[in-house]
Simulated assay, not measured.
Amino acid sequence: MLTKKGKYGLKAMAYLAKFTPGRPVPVAEIATTQNIPKKFLDSILCELRNSGYVSSKMGKGGGYTLARQPEQIIIGDIIRALDGPLAPLPCASKTRYQPCDDCGDVERCAIRLIMQEAQRALSEVLDSCTLAQARSLSDRVALCYDI
């Protein structure tokens, strides 16, 4: 399940994608417009900066900007940076596999096999969508509601 941290991170990144590259957006503006608690957003943006997704500028006129073009930022990667693996269970994870304590046969475990399928499907969707595509979808949905 996507955590609030992951959801808020995606919302902040989509908001930053609206702006001209290199134009810093103040944290308070992001927090207010996206309805995200500022203190929590500060922490999220720090993680995203450390992961190379945003850049920051301190002082007057400062704020955050995307570190790369929205077309180069994959939604699945943002979620992994904030929430960890996409797998619903550690035994279904490709990158952080851990067997379950109560599993007798990892290779034949029905729960693990179905969770691996779920992980593959989720990864396929989230890894094939860029921030630019998500932003475009958001704009189209907004236009539908404006009619």
Rank of each mutant, 00 (worst) to 15 (best):
P26F: 06
S55D: 11
I147A: 12
G22S: 10
L10F: 02
N35R: 04
L126W: 06
A87F: 09
G22Q: 04
C103P: 04
G104K: 12
D83S: 07
A17C: 00
G52H: 05
I74F: 08
T95Q: 11
C91H: 10
L82N: 05
S93K: 02
R23L: 13
K11V: 00
G6I: 14
D102A: 15
E117Q: 12
E124G: 14
K38H: 05
A132D: 02
A134D: 04
C129H: 07
D83W: 13
Y64H: 15
G104N: 05
Q72T: 05
Q34M: 12
A118I: 11
L131H: 06
G6C: 10
S43Q: 08
S138H: 11
A121N: 12
A81E: 08
R96C: 06
A67H: 00
R112E: 09
L2P: 02
C100F: 08
Y8C: 01
C100T: 03
A118G: 05
Y53A: 02
D139V: 15
D139C: 08
G76M: 12
D105E: 03
Y64I: 05
I147T: 13
M1L: 10
R112N: 02
T65C: 13
I147Y: 10
R80E: 08
I114K: 03
T32A: 01
L82Q: 10
S43H: 08
R108K: 15
Y15H: 14
I75K: 01
P90G: 05
T33C: 06
A67F: 03
K7Q: 15
P24F: 08
T32N: 00
L16F: 07
V106F: 14
L66G: 05
T95H: 08
A12I: 09
F40C: 01
V27T: 14
D146M: 09
S51L: 04
R120T: 02
S136E: 13
L48C: 09
G9A: 07
G62K: 12
E124D: 12
S123F: 06
I111W: 03
K39Y: 08
L86N: 01
T33A: 01
K94F: 13
T33K: 13
N35G: 00
L122T: 15
R80Q: 04
F19R: 00
Q133G: 00
A132Y: 09
L10K: 01
T65S: 15
A121S: 05
P90K: 10
I78A: 13
V125C: 04
P26Y: 03
N50C: 08
G9V: 12
Y15R: 11
A28H: 05
G84T: 03
A14G: 01
I111M: 00
I78S: 12
L126N: 02
S55L: 14
T33F: 05
S93D: 10
L16N: 04
G9H: 09
I111A: 01
E29N: 01
I75M: 13
Q119D: 15
S55H: 09
C109K: 09
T130M: 13
R135C: 11
A81L: 09
A142N: 10
I75C: 04
I36L: 01
A87C: 09
A28Q: 08
L2E: 02
L45R: 00
A31E: 03
T20D: 12
D105Y: 07
